[in-house]
Amino acid sequence: MTTLQIVFLIIAAITLVSACLVVMTRKIMHAALWLVLSLMGVAMVYATLQSGFYAVVQVLVYIGAISTLIIFAVMMTRNVMEDVGPQSNRGWGLALVGSLILFAGTSAILLTWDKAQTVLQEIPAVNGENIQMLGLALVDPMGFLIPFEVASVLLLAALVAAIFLTADIKRSRS
């Protein structure tokens, strides 16, 4: 077992345990904080895969923006303290079987897929800069130009929807 594999196992353990705690903890604020740790673990997985850009973007967007948004949303709810009800419903056995089947299926596909890599591949780069290639692909008509422009429209739509919803809250309060 190489050092990288040990590091990966530690990171994976942190990510999975905190992901479980997100749904198991009773205080909703603690769930939000565990979610931050879980997302941090994902960022560290990206770092071990040499994908620095995705690692920092994961921290920037998911921890910096989305977690803040979730915490603000948590503080808008009334019952921030503690949930006392049961944490599972009658269908939990079915859900367990379903998720186990999904896990087994995904593992089987990955194990038999001949393109799956277990050795770290060097990311293609022009003199050490793979971000440059990403930037050029974003504005290349043969590349990702349409998704790039659609993304901005999508962001606009998200903003319009968000403002509409919160304006609605204000109106119903007054």
Partner: peptide, 25 residues
């Protein structure tokens, strides 16, 4: 010499924001 150094600095700043939120909570 990190090839995403500048974004790293901004990302680390958002960890400090988490620290402040945790203090308040």
């Amino acid at each position: 010499n990190l090839n995403v150094g500048l974004l790293y600095i901004i990302a680390v700043g958002s960890l400090g924001e988490m620290g402040i939120l945790m203090a308040g909570w």
